[in-house]
């Protein structure tokens, strides 16, 4: 649990450089000091990162610009604009944005309630522990859980029908945009709670009291001080939640099969059986996913840099 939050903290914060290195004045000293032991220590990591993270990803980026014969082409990227693929991207972005924004908002509300809402202290640690578990409870079993809850035979559906309300006749369907979003919230909200709790702890009680003595209402405190102070953290978490939802496939696949054509499912089908009849188009699809998650992070970095003025 701590690991989740610390990993995310780093993604949401400036990278610390740790204690100063003790390299001598001579610039060649570093290389002279680079002993066999050092190389052995760092080599596995570098080789692994190249072979299993960087080169495979770059290979896809290059592949997106190659035709089957290996010549440069922009056709694959332009083919992303075909209605089927564009629709996939659109629904993926909608699900990811909605689940990230709702997850962040609800997660923030719950985190505020348990930290600043004067609830018994035991509740906080219970919620944090549960969040550690729930944030990892994703994929296939999560879809089973929601089928058992909100599926046609699910407990909630049955109970509501018993109470005289037919969920499915009212237009709800678990195998839909909203169904998927509600399901994704099950891991998005806990992730938000885990990441934002330390930031909320950083809001000093005196800021609220100072604002109150200056005439501010509770709402004005949050508008002018609380949220602006949390803002960089909120944005960082938002981009992480977005990436988290955008790349997720197992939950959606087990829940909806291929009835909800989000991008990862389309890509999955393409890898399985070349449904797009063009390997280069698959790579372009992957490129599109990389670009969108990268954009989300760049937006975050830009806004964060602007907030950096007052962040120590």
């Amino acid at each position: 649990m701590t690991n989740v939050s610390s990993a995310a903290d780093t993604s949401a914060g400036p990278v610390s450089t740790g204690p100063a290195v003790r390299v001598g004045g001579n610039p060649f000293r570093f290389f002279l000091r680079l002993r066999l032991g050092d190389i052995i220590a760092i080599a596995p990591f570098i080789i692994f990162a190249l072979l299993f993270l960087l080169i495979p990803t770059l290979g896809l980026v290059v592949g997106a610009f190659q035709d089957p014969q290996g010549n440069f082409t922009l056709q694959n990227v332009m083919d992303l604009a075909t209605p089927q693929i564009a629709a996939s991207f659109w629904i993926s972005i909608r699900v990811s944005v909605t689940s990230a924004v709702l997850g962040a908002a609800i997660g923030l509300a719950i985190a505020l309630a348990i930290i600043r809402g004067k609830l018994p202290s035991g509740i906080r640690s219970a919620v944090m522990t549960f969040s550690g578990v729930a944030s990892q409870f994703a994929g296939i079993p999560l879809s089973f859980a929601f089928l058992a809850t909100l599926g046609r035979l699910g407990l909630v559906t049955v109970l509501l029908k018993f109470a005289g309300f037919d969920l499915y006749k009212s237009g709800f369907n678990l195998l839909s945009f909203w169904g998927l979003t509600i399901t994704y919230l099950y891991f998005q909200i806990p992730l938000m709670i885990l990441i934002i709790a330390p930031a909320i702890d950083g809001l000093k009680k005196e800021w609220g009291e100072a604002a109150a003595t200056l005439g501010a209402t509770n709402g004005q405190f949050w508008r002018y001080i609380g949220l602006p102070v949390l803002w960089p953290n909120l944005l960082g978490t938002l981009s992480l939640l977005f990436a988290n939802a955008f790349g997720a496939i197992a939950t959606a696949y087990a829940l909806t099969g291929s009835s909800l054509n989000i991008v990862p499912i389309l890509l999955y089908a393409q890898i399985r059986g070349d449904v797009l009849h063009n390997p280069g188009l698959g790579a372009a699809l992957a490129l599109g996913m990389i670009v969108i998650t990268a954009l989300a992070n760049i937006v975050y970095l830009v806004i964060r840099t602007r907030a950096e003025r007052w962040l120590k």
Binding site: K204, E206, W207, E209, A210, A211, A212, T213, L214, G215, A216, T217, Y224, I225, P228, V229, A307, W310, L311
Partner: peptide
Amino acid sequence: PNQRKIGMVFQAYALFPN
């Protein structure tokens, strides 16, 4: 507190960092 028109200074300054 926000209706009392009483100014207050705190031990830890409590300036708004943003």
